[in-house]
């Protein structure tokens, strides 16, 4: 990686200062390799077009935030990136979605192989009704790792990465459902990290959590982004400014004649630019709180 390691961001959106500028500029001018390239992507549920015309590139070792009002298709686009939408009957993708140069929706691509590289953390913490240990070891076991010593090592490392180890190390064999909301979500993150994915997709991971748990998860995201590429859907604009390097703003196109709503990608760029110097009036209206 030839661009400088980004500094750990403050918890509040900092005032733009002379010291802050180079970091933003570095991210803007010299991003890492493209992990995803999407071109003119439209997603349908049956005959309903949920999202249209999404073209964006997502870069390695960055946190990319998807923001926008409800029903704008941010989650739908996110779930397209690891083929989770395959599980919804009638879901269909048009356009190109490339992951590291390979088309995700080409013939012969196995969604299983895709999801082993591109993990996902969901809106509601969803630990399995198994022990904490078995929750984290689930992914490695699915991938064929059954050696006890290796699994112990992976479980400890993943829980440490997810900043949960100290809280659960004495109760690894108790149920994962006994954790608080914030702990359960960090367990789900640990479970995702345990398979060492290339990309972690997060669908509003903090919407069910209080501000303290949210702060912990945001710190965690900043810590792990040097190893993973993260895409996060959030309803919380402060969260986007706090953690993300780039932001994509989605909006809803209403067709009153047919009474349909379709999500569109309005604007995509470095987070600072989206929030401080939006090019599109709809972005401006949304980030300043006049709409949405």
């Amino acid at each position: 990686m030839d661009h400088p390691e980004p500094k750990v961001a403050e918890t509040e959106l900092p005032e733009p200062t002379a010291q802050q500028q180079p970091r933003e500029a570095a991210v803007f001018e010299r991003p890492g390799a493209e992990v995803f390239k999407t071109k003119n992507v439209s997603i349908y549920y049956g005959s309903f077009r949920a999202v249209t015309d999404v073209s964006l590139d997502i870069y390695e070792h960055e946190i990319t935030a998807f923001i926008g009002p409800s029903g704008c298709g941010k989650t739908t686009v996110l779930r397209t990136l690891n083929r989770m939408n395959d599980l919804v009957t009638g879901a269909r993708v048009e356009g190109d979605v490339e992951y590291r140069g390979a088309s995700l929706y080409a013939k012969g691509v196995s969604p299983i192989a895709v999801r082993r590289r591109i993990g996902m953390v969901f809106q509601k913490p969803n630990p399995f009704p198994k022990s904490i240990y078995d929750n984290v070891a689930y992914g490695p076991r699915v991938n064929g790792e059954h050696k006890k010593s290796r699994l112990d090592e992976i479980v400890e490392r993943s829980l440490r990465h997810a900043v949960l180890w100290d809280e659960v190390k004495d109760r690894l064999h108790k149920s994962g459902l006994g954790l608080s909301g914030g702990q359960a979500q960090r367990l789900c993150i640990a479970r995702t990290l345990a398979v060492e994915p290339d990309v972690v997709l997060m669908d509003e991971p903090c919407s069910a959590l209080d501000p303290i748990a949210t702060g912990r998860i945001e710190n965690l995201l900043r810590e792990i982004k040097s190893r993973y590429t993260i895409v996060i859907v959030t309803h919380n604009m402060q969260q986007a400014t706090r953690v993300s390097d780039r932001t994509a703003f989605y909006s809803v196109l209403r067709d009153d004649k047919n009474d349909t709503r379709t999500g569109v990608l309005v604007e995509y760029g470095p987070t600072r630019q989206i929030f401080e110097d939006p090019r599109d009036s709809r972005t401006q209206a949304y980030v300043t709180g006049r709409m949405g």
Partner: peptide, 10 residues
Amino acid sequence: SLREASYALG
């Protein structure tokens, strides 16, 4: 959500 969590791990 449990099924999806499992699918998301490959």
